[in-house]
Write a protein that binds this DNA or RNA. Structure first.
Lengths: 200, 200
DNA sequence: ACTTGAACGAAACGGCTCGTTTCGTTATAT
DNA sequence: ATATAACGAAACGAGCCGTTTCGTTCAAGT
């Protein structure tokens, strides 16, 4: 992606201040390890080795493995959660399609899977994930607010809840390693999902 | 649940055959650890301590932590995946309601969460989970096959896929620790889900 | 009746990882 | 000029992992 490995040059202190080169090398090494080996290979020790960084340097800025993981996660580029194509069905297709592509082709899938897995073990990760998801549902609910303004979906549809529902399916596919969904198959899924959301 | 702890009595060899008392104590201790401390506390060592069993005894019958975890999982009582209430909407409500209750009140939720988390790390767990889910979709698809026979859902509905979709939402709730859903709220979710599955 | 062999729990092992501490070095901040 | 803090490397003790050893208990086979 960036074209360079986690640790190209030797680094050292640049005085009584944080060294951004070390910070970058550590975060990049962490992401590489997640992508290549998954959460099982992800440890402070392994990241330090790969980044040619000292363990105390990592522990100074990222007190726990979970915090480092979440930092890697937050540095990702995220997909547009509320595309506006003019129709609810194509909006949802676009959103899910973008999510799948992001998870499939980039590093996003491996990182996000790891965050979810970590949340099953670490309350800090669980709390962070909950907060993040709530924000995303709020933002993404815009799709349904717009559609309601167009009288395209029923009154009783709750935007945030609908958002949560339509993203659930791809979550499950991510966690069960079945992300490769052909466009026509995805269209069928969206058809299942959307038809009930339309006003009669 | 059973009323007794993992290891009440001292056990020893009963000759050149497997000791079912040890087997039970180990599986019960494993389940207790999962419920009380989650996957993070789950190790062969911890299970051996709690069950007053020797580590070699565990390794003899469950070569890896994942295999032990899956054995705990498979010993659960599972909910009826295809309730037959006569109408698709109440069928789905019943199914999701049963799932939520099982996960909430019993040990099922903690154990299943752990299996999903383990599947993010261990390919063996991932494979086992995939096989199990495929079987469940197949069985649960019966709900939609019956509904199609009644002309209650559209022709294009794919039973197994519909099953996957409607269970996705509670999966996500399980994994984000938001299982407590009031009946009227669940009814709303089902309304979101089902309405699109109905024939016009 | 006697021997063989397997399962059992306990203990100890070598190896590994974890989070911390120590060290000498670098360079900013005062 | 001095104090302070960050840096990477190395080493530390603690704990867990998977295995081995040990003495004991009995079913299975002769």
């Amino acid at each position: 992606m960036t074209g360079k490995k986690a640790a190209d040059a030797r680094r050292t202190s640049i005085g009584a201040q944080r060294n951004p080169a070390s910070q970058d090398a550590i975060l990049q090494a962490a992401e590489e390890i997640l992508v290549e080996g998954g959460l099982g290979s992800f440890s402070i020790e392994a990241v330090a080795r790969r980044a040619h960084a000292g363990k105390p340097t990592i522990y100074r800025w990222w007190p726990t493995r979970t915090i480092l993981l979440l930092d890697v996660y937050h540095r990702q580029k995220f997909v547009d959660i509320a595309p506006d194509t003019g129709a609810i069905e194509t909006d949802i297709f676009q959103l899910l399609s973008d999510l799948l592509e992001f998870w499939n082709t980039g590093h996003g899938g491996a990182v996000f899977r790891s965050v979810i897995a970590e949340a099953q073990t670490d309350p800090a990760a669980s709390k962070a994930l909950a907060a993040y998801m709530a924000e995303r549902y709020q933002q993404g609910g815009e799709i349904f607010r717009r559609a309601k303004a167009r009288d395209e979906v029923a009154d009783w549809v709750v935007p945030e809840l609908a958002m949560e529902i339509i993203t659930s399916f791809v979550w499950k596919r991510l966690l069960t390693d079945r992300l490769e969904i052909a466009p026509e198959q995805l269209r069928l899924v969206v058809r299942h999902l959307v038809h009930g959301l339309k006003a009669q």
